[in-house]
Structures are given as C-alpha cells and as structure tokens.
Simulated assay, not measured.
Amino acid sequence: MRNPNTSICVINVNMVPFATLYILIFLIGMATSLVALWAFITSQSAKMCINVYLINLLTSDFLLMLALPVKIAKNLGNESLSLTIFHCQVSAPLIYINMYASIIFLSFISVQRYLQITRSSKLLRLQEVGFAVLMSAVVWFLVLFINVPNMAILIKGNLPDKHQLTCSNLKEDLGKHWHALSVFLGMAIFFNASAAVLLSNGLVLKQLWGRHESELEDQASPRHAFINIALVTLAYVVCFVPYHAVRMPYTFTQIEFITDCSLKKSLFLAKESTLLLSILHLCFDPVLYFVICHGFRHQVTKAFSNRHSVPNSDPE
C-alpha cells in the first residue's frame, strides 16, 4: 500500500550549491570544448579511426552544454512549471544521452588505443575509419532509442499543486516504467563499457610498464604515456562509478518501491552529488583529446607557442 506521506515529501531542497558548481563546469567546459572544436577543424589528421570517436565525444559534450543552463536555472530555485516540464522532457534526457554516449565512446577510444599500441594485424578491420563511422552511428541510435521515449511520453494531465516538483511527479505510470527500463539499460551499457575501458587500459598500462622496464636508455616516453593512461582511467572511474553505484537505489524511490521520506532525501542527495561528478567529465574530456590525439596536441601546442613567442624584428 502506498504511503500517503510520499505525496508531501519534498526532496529537492537547497540545490543552490549544486548550481554554483554547475556554472563553473559549464564555463570551463564551454571554453575548452570550443578550443577542442577549433583544433579538430584545423587538424590535418581528423580522418583517423580514433579521432572519429573523439569528435563524436566532443559532439556529445556540446549536447550536454545545451542542457546545463536549464538544470542550473532549476537548481537556482526557478519553480516555473513550464521550465520544470522542459527540464524533465528535454534537458534531463539530453544529460543522459551525453552520459551514455560518452561512456561508450570512451570505451571505443580505450580499445582503439590498445589496438594502436599492440599493432595487431588480426584486428585491422576495427581500426578502419569506415568501421568507426558505422559504430558511431550505432551508438547514437542506441542512446537515442533509450532516451527519446522519455522526451516523447506525455506527462500527467492534472499536475499536483505543489512546489519543487521532481520529474517523477510529472510522469504517468507508463513514463515511470520506461524511465526505470532506461535506467536498467543504461546500467547494462555502463558495466559492459567499463569492462572494456578497464581491461583495455589495464593491458595498455601493462605493455607500457614493460617498455618502461626494458628501455632503460629512454624511459621518459613510456613513463609519460603510462601516467597519462593511468590518469585517464582514474578520471573515468571518479566520474562514472559513484553515480552508477547509487542510480539503481534512487530509481526505486521514483517508482515508489522506496517510500520512506528520509531515505528518499538521502538517495536524492547522493544521486545529485554523483551526477555532478559524472558531468565533470565535460572538463576532463579536452585533457583526453590532448593525451590521445596527436593532431589536437600539435594544434594546441603550436597555437600557444606562437602566442608566447616574441618576434625580434629590430635590426642589430
């Protein structure tokens, strides 16, 4: 039997600190993503397999930046019903489209990085640009198939008359059930992609460590690559693992399986905190571009070196 007190349980209070952090992430992410866009446009090596995945990752990040201003406005306390509806039907699904597209593309990048280092001739097909384009199209179809119904399924006709509505308050039973299904599918994507990321990066780190041990005369390059891949792996774990640890318990509050108000508040706070961590990847992705993509690194390095160089045109 449904607890009657759940209808008056307000969980999304004191969200201003989250809004402040989202503003910082948005500004940093926008600046670095625009630099990344410029570097990819001007780079001569854009048509490489791994760069196809990087460019799709950047596209996903721009979708996230379209959604963040609405989430910031909500967290600052704007209780406009039209804004709430827009957030629940457009900007929130865009956030999850970005999250799972990013997770899959990061797994593809990790696998491609491993194939580059091992130079396996048996898997040349996986390193072709055409294959990368095809897989990118499959990824976008998958994440859109999972999340677009959350945009399309109609909300309730008679909305509850209360402040600080959550998205689950607006959904009919069909919308809640599809949302729960999309969470399960997202968890499946996360576990499979994480296995690919951790296994591929682990094998790369093992190979780089072997080179670090054997190439005593030139250890700088293997050591530098080892540190870079280790940091990329750590960033992936920090951004995405905590969120998925609390996502399923929080979903149970949305479908009224968990009705205790204090527990719902705790799970909501945990979900919002870990969601903030996952959106932080917007700031980490440009670092990934710099580490992985030679063309991107060359363009950025050349731009900054030109800016800091002082021409000496005075005659001696």
Rank of each mutant, 00 (worst) to 15 (best):
V35F: 11
Y96K: 05
M48N: 12
N78D: 15
V70I: 15
H87A: 09
L106F: 03
A73C: 07
R113G: 03
L68K: 06
L37R: 06
I117R: 14
K47W: 11
V111R: 15
L64H: 03
I55P: 02
T118H: 10
F62I: 05
I72V: 13
F105I: 06
K47R: 13
T59A: 14
I109F: 05
F40E: 04
F108E: 09
H87Y: 15
T59C: 13
S80E: 10
V111E: 04
K47G: 03
N56V: 01
V70Q: 04
V70E: 06
I72S: 00
L106D: 03
S45Q: 14
L54C: 14
I55M: 15
L106V: 04
N51P: 09
G77S: 04
L58K: 03
V90C: 05
C88Y: 04
Y100W: 14
F62V: 05
Y96V: 10
S45L: 11
D61C: 13
S45M: 08
F105D: 00
A46G: 12
Q116R: 11
S45A: 10
A36H: 04
I55F: 10
A92R: 00
L64S: 10
V35N: 10
C49D: 09
T118M: 12
T84F: 02
Q89P: 01
I103V: 15
N56Y: 11
L76A: 09
F86Q: 05
T42F: 13
C49W: 00
T42P: 00
C88V: 03
A101E: 04
S82R: 14
W38K: 12
S107R: 02
A73M: 12
L68N: 02
S121D: 15
L37N: 04
L94M: 13
L115Q: 08
A46H: 10
I97A: 02
C88L: 06
Y53M: 05
L106G: 10
I41G: 01
Q89N: 12
L81D: 08
C49F: 00
L81I: 12
T118G: 06
L68S: 08
I103Q: 06
A73P: 00
S91F: 03
N75G: 07
I85G: 05
S107C: 12
P69V: 13
I72F: 02
S60R: 00
V111I: 14
Y96C: 05
